[in-house]
Design a protein around this nucleic acid. Structure first.
Lengths: 375, 375
DNA sequence: TTGAAAGCGCTAACAC
DNA sequence: GTGTTAGCGCTTTCAA
């Protein structure tokens, strides 16, 4: 057999890629199997249309050449890349990781690839990344958050790119709708947190927030906590509304110090994120404040952190995994012309552990109601 | 102007994508600007070659049509996708996230897209994902870990796909080399951990490991710890070598119980990962064992967790960020025909916090040497 | 059942 | 400088 060693025919004009030998194309296979390229394509896509004998020959050639079809060429014809782009605010905050995992899983199952970009909370960069993803022929885009340049919805609309937003701020989603959106009930979560503290008898409730810049979800949580405290007819002086510059131990402790150094000490603190608990707990430990005896703490998010905190953190579970899964599914629906709901807000859930108790001087403490339902 | 409303010419055979109106192509722009497609292409790629007047006309048409070049078509010609694929073992373990962030950053800076796949530690799935990524025309692949099917290196070699491995087990990398690799010194890290405990006066040192199945890095750490304990002439009975089924609180505590329930209690525990500290600390708290007074703990990894643990965790810093960055850079070098080093092992670093002290009955305690160099 | 040929949107010779 | 044209690798009519 003359073709045993199938070196590229000497006169070939086929440009070898810079990085190696030319890959076998459908043409090579056709030549090797003694059929036309159309037949090879049929064996690949609709094998039943090819008579067994030729099919075998083609399959053999395919295997011998380690043929890998060129998806790029296919995308060109089908006008579909079977890939979607995910734009994240950042990977520094690990709360998105479970959502990413869920998205990856859903897409992989459906045969879609996932491209990831982090815009580092820079809306201009986000817009640029969206453009690049469109250039790259993404079948759809998953956008995280709701702090965008107005050009972004315009871009998506003009190019009719299917897209779903996740982790949107409810207000913004209603105010400037940008297609189907999945949100967490951030405001509701902190209201529930404050309600829980209130139900435990706390009347001096403070708020400790993460950075709110370009992070509507955190801002929603923060403002909602304050509003809910007032809703209960309680005071909430500025000194009890601290914002940390970051989630690291140092920044959080500085913010926590502002709360604890003011004349009147709160008996409970509602956090906009579980991560903040650790710094606050550190600060309490340094001041020999016992949690929950001297200070109750309730988190928000229900990340791993909370489960391991000392004491284990009572918190509001936020369904990030479900959010990612829903976003991915809705986007795939959209790509396949089925229309997902415009805005769905996923429910939170109170997770009672051990960082909240009745205040020491409680009048209306109902300690019996506190029990762990997770751990 | 007749073309103000540029509806797709009625007779056009151009297939509209299923999801919307046909996007403007270079042909549309050429027609609108009254030039040839080549001129439009030149305006896009080598604007200096086009006379100003026509260039302006083209630019105007480009803007009016919101033209977005089709990267797929470009890739077809250049045979480069300017995209790379990253295969991860899992996203459930957040240690990889900082590496991913570093990779994303490096690639974004270089104008490359990042595709992410999780194989969930299933080597067959990893192989399938690699195939898919090759089909999709990735310019290179970033592989994580070193537990592969033998078909994987074969596949990469046959198709001459530039690839770099990260988080490789040093032994495996040397034994079955698979191209340029970046590793962490897992064995060295646990040896250093044990050395530190030994230097603090500990002679009864136990090991608590995360699951080792398909996770050579963890196995390396585990075995190295045991070997190092023996190297110091100490005993290390089986009961002092516990392996947790998972990193969650429950699994870790079960493993920790095995350590602490055996007749002879260790005075110190070396962990294969920071994450395990939290469960172990919980268990100690439940038994009223003070850390570090009654038990010293040293972690490995230096994740956020450790900074927030109570007490703050003395640990071995593992350079995951540097690993991701190096992997991305080396891969880009490889794609551009520059040859990166075959195997680089990144250095670890002891981070002394507060979870290690001399044992209560120490003979050779040198407490003065212990000081925090981070926090 | 198969093959020839026309593109998908773009770039790069090669003429003019 | 600019236009014409030949592909990139593949799928898909349309004939045979």
């Amino acid at each position: 057999m003359a073709e045993t060693r199938s070196k590229p025919s000497k006169g070939s004009k086929r440009a070898s890629t810079r990085t190696g030998a030319p890959k076998a194309t459908i043409k090579d296979i056709a030549r090797a199997a003694g059929v036309s390229v159309a037949t090879v394509s049929r064996v690949l896509n609709t094998p039943d249309l090819v008579v067994a004998k030729k099919r075998q020959a083609v399959l053999r050639a395919l295997r011998r050449h380690d043929y890998i079809p060129n998806q790029t060429a296919r995308s060109m014809i089908s006008r579909r890349s079977r890939a979607i782009g995910l734009i994240l605010p950042t990977l520094a905050n690990p709360v998105f990781v479970p959502a990413i995992a869920a998205i990856e899983q859903e897409l992989d199952r459906a045969g879609y690839a996932l491209l990831i970009n982090c815009c580092e909370r820079d809306p201009a960069r986000e817009l640029a990344q969206a453009r690049t993803l469109i250039e790259r022929g993404m079948d759809g885009l998953l956008i995280t958050g709701s702090e965008h340049l107005p050009d972004l919805p315009a871009l998506l609309a003009r190019h009719r790119i299917p897209h779903v937003s996740q982790d949107v701020s409810q207000d913004i989603a209603l105010d400037k709708p940008m297609g189907p959106s999945i949100g967490l009930d951030n405001a509701g979560a902190l209201a529930a947190a404050v309600d829980h503290l209130h139900a435990c008898g706390h009347r001096r409730i403070a708020v400790l927030s993460g950075p709110v810049h370009n992070t509507p979800s955190v801002r929603d949580r923060f403002l909602s906590a304050i509003a809910r405290i007032r809703h209960h007819g309680l005071i909430c002086p500025d000194a009890w509304c601290a914002v940390s510059d970051d989630y690291d131990n140092h920044s959080t402790r500085i913010a926590a110090q502002r709360l604890l150094d003011c004349g009147e000490q709160p008996t409970a603190v509602a956090l906009t994120g579980d991560l903040l608990a650790l710094g606050l707990i550190s600060e309490c430990r340094a001041r020999s404040l016992d949690i929950p005896r001297d200070l109750s703490i309730i988190g928000c998010g229900d990340t791993n952190m909370g489960q391991y905190a000392d004491p284990p953190l009572t918190t509001i579970h936020m369904p990030f995994v479900e959010m990612g899964r829903a976003a991915a599914r809705d986007l795939l629906s959209l790509i396949e012309d089925r229309k997902p709901p415009e805005l769905s807000i996923l429910p939170h859930e109170l997770v009672i552990r051990q960082s909240v108790a009745a205040p020491a001087n409680a009048h209306s403490a109902k300690t019996g109601r506190l029990r762990t339902n997770r751990l």
